[in-house]
Amino acid sequence: MTGHAKLSAFEAAYGFARSDVRLSNWRQAPWNVWAFRHVSELIPTARIAATPGLTEDAVVAPGDLLGLTLATGEETMTIADALRRTSTDAMVVMKSGRVIADYHAANFTLQSRHILFSSSKSVTAVVAGIAYDDGLIDLDAPVPHYVPELKSSAYADARIRDVLDMRVSLDFSETYQDPRGDFARYRRAGLLEPAVPGDTPDSLIAFLASLQKGAGDHGGPFHYCSPNSDVLGLVIERATGRRFSGFVSERLWQPIGARQDACITVDATGLARTGGGFCMTPRDFARIGELMRLGGTLHGRRILSHHWVEDTIAHGSAEAWRAGPGVAWLPEGRYSNKWYQAGNASGAFFTLGIHGQMLYVDPVAELTIAKFSSQPEPVNNDLKRLNLALFDAVAKQA
């Protein structure tokens, strides 16, 4: 073909062809910008149904919000600068229960879903709280009480409480960019990467059953390991007798008034990857933050007990946090029920997923912010701190 080839609508929008995006590169820039919004085209998912007939209000332009400034200690920048620097795909800001600003990058709409990655863990913990409130989960019970397949694994004597607080002693390394390590095997078990012959367990539960205990006892330092949250999802399924996606739809998604169906990635057996597979719209993500901000009640309906919310946002172990690696980027932080506590004067708490997925709640400012990003690196402590500075600036000025 001579001359300039005409770009497809997809290529014009994203700068590359749809055929360029594969399971082997979907988390890498620039392909991740599209892939994080279209996970179900790459990985099997289960539907989490919203109540039919609910629709979103119109987009609220961010207006003056983008011109607000924040100081990082090294420089001063605008909110718009910070959004660009953190590769933001979408952000919604709610004040006192009302949407006051939507920010959407190119090709993102109110109906666009985005993967949460490890912010999924926090949503899974909310679902665990609902099952706990039903009297179905004993936090002091050992994991095999609910999942006997794990009785020969590291989880044999781990309590559900240890799983919730990331205080399981586990011989597992969360190295995101090692193609042959434990984390790569974990991803392959969840169908998140192409299979490698002879190196992929048949299923997620087979992978979990292969994990062994670390050197210390359970209940010690904060030790971030994603498989713990998939164990929690298994516990929820066994305790409730329900498929995870169906329980979430009935007991969380529809009660909070979610406007769009969500979905969650599943393995070859249909098991939900509750440690990182949720996909949803930013406004629906923000509704989960509002549920937590309001102590478990939304739209006049009790969905989650105040006891569970209080335990999540105020009772993390400072000692366990200081003994773990998170102190390097969140010096005053704590962690409880898979939510981070900022340790600041406003009592802010938040979720966190790789590549910049966050849900931030400031109870004093009555503020909830949901933010999706496609940051090129999975983990960047400088960008974590910048995101927190951005949220704090919005809380103080919006």
Rank of each mutant, 00 (worst) to 15 (best):
A13H: 10
S19N: 14
S24C: 11
P44C: 02
A46M: 03
A49K: 04
A49I: 04
T51E: 15
M77T: 10
A80L: 12
A80F: 05
D89G: 01
K95Q: 15
H104I: 09
A105Y: 07
S119T: 10
V126Y: 09
A128V: 10
G129A: 10
A131P: 03
D133Q: 02
I137Y: 03
P144Y: 06
Y146E: 08
S153N: 04
V163D: 00
L170I: 06
T175L: 15
Y176H: 09
P179R: 03
P179F: 12
F183N: 11
A184F: 11
Y186H: 05
Y186Q: 03
E193H: 14
P194I: 10
A195E: 15
S203Q: 06
L204N: 01
P221R: 03
P221G: 05
P227M: 14
L232K: 03
L252M: 01
Q254P: 04
A262F: 07
G270S: 06
L271G: 03
L271D: 07
R302Y: 07
D311T: 13
T312D: 05
A314E: 14
W321I: 13
P325C: 10
V327A: 01
W339S: 02
Y340V: 04
Q341F: 13
N344M: 12
A345R: 04
G353A: 07
M358W: 11
D362A: 00
V379F: 03
N380R: 12
D382V: 06
K384M: 12
V394G: 00
